[in-house]
Write a protein that binds this DNA or RNA. Structure first.
Length: 259
DNA sequence: CGGCCCTAATTT
DNA sequence: AAATTAGGGCCG
């Protein structure tokens, strides 16, 4: 059974590669090379936008993952503007809509944060696509999750660049679905970060329950390996969130570096 | 007190 | 379906 899944995963990986998965970035990210993209997908739409790449899942109507590289300059972006949540023209149906979230009690929560996309009008606008949105508890989104987002920007400013990938976790499906399209409400969210220093890579992961959470990032910190285990269980596919990084850099994290 | 996370109602 | 307009709460 496991062998079959592994073969399936490899087949999908090959297919995705053949379809242009390895087309290089043309932006000026110092690390670049799409090093931030996870090595897993359910063969759903892989959608590239200026500020992030996402794997959209047509069953959950949420992304499986959203990945981006945040530079110091980008974290200092000052682009303003009110943009509205809208459907992603690059994703085929079915997809979530604003109606599904309206009066549901759940936030339209950004995965790649709005505040990470203020370096370009286009990037900011595209961050509002539902490709980048999941139902999130409001207190968690504006509490613990926001603190992790601010930590990420702080690290980008301090170290020049951060690789980030995050997404939903489904375990008990305790929250059911919302809207006529049946958007699946995640049980929790994960986020993995990587920073390249003179002494090598530093990585960390965070797992936050989709319920009122307002703690500091350190309270939710785990190794990237632990996150990958949870993602594998949630999605039923083998997972490597930072496939190009040495595996031993993902087994632990250094609290004194991140917190 | 500004920045960040948003919501809802109304109009086109 | 999307744009416009007006508003709330929390945290550093």
């Amino acid at each position: 059974m496991y062998k079959r899944k592994t073969l399936m995963f490899l087949a999908i990986a090959l297919l995705v590669t053949a379809c242009g998965f390895s087309v290089p970035y043309t932006d000026n990210h110092p690390i670049g090379g799409e090093i931030e993209l996870p090595a897993y997908s359910n063969a759903e739409d892989i959608v590239r936008h200026e500020g992030y790449t996402a794997s959209y899942n047509h069953t959950t109507l949420c992304p499986d993952w959203v990945a981006w590289e945040l530079t110091a300059d980008e974290a200092n972006g000052q682009v303003d503007g009110q943009y509205s949540f809208s459907r992603d023209p690059m994703v085929n149906s079915p997809k979530a809509s604003r109606e599904d979230y309206s009066r549901s009690g759940w936030d339209k929560g950004h995965m790649a944060p709005r505040a990470d996309m203020r370096w370009s009008t286009q990037a900011l606008e595209e961050s509002y696509f539902f490709t980048n949105i999941c139902p999130q508890d409001h207190a968690m989104n504006s509490g613990a999750w926001r603190k992790i987002e601010e930590l990420t920007r702080r690290m980008a400013r301090r170290h020049g660049s951060v690789l980030a990938v995050c997404g939903p976790l489904y375990t008990s499906h305790a929250h059911g679905t919302i809207g006529s399209a049946a958007v699946q409400v995640p049980d929790a969210f994960y986020k993995a970060l990587a920073v390249k220093t003179a002494d090598g890579w530093q990585t960390v992961g965070y797992v936050v329950d989709n319920s009122p959470q307002d703690g500091s990032p350190r309270r939710y910190a785990v190794s990237v390996d632990s996150v990958e285990t949870l993602v594998s269980l949630s999605r039923g596919v083998a997972t490597d969130l930072f496939p190009t990084l040495p595996d031993d850099t993902e087994r632990t994290f250094d609290p004194s570096f991140w917190h």
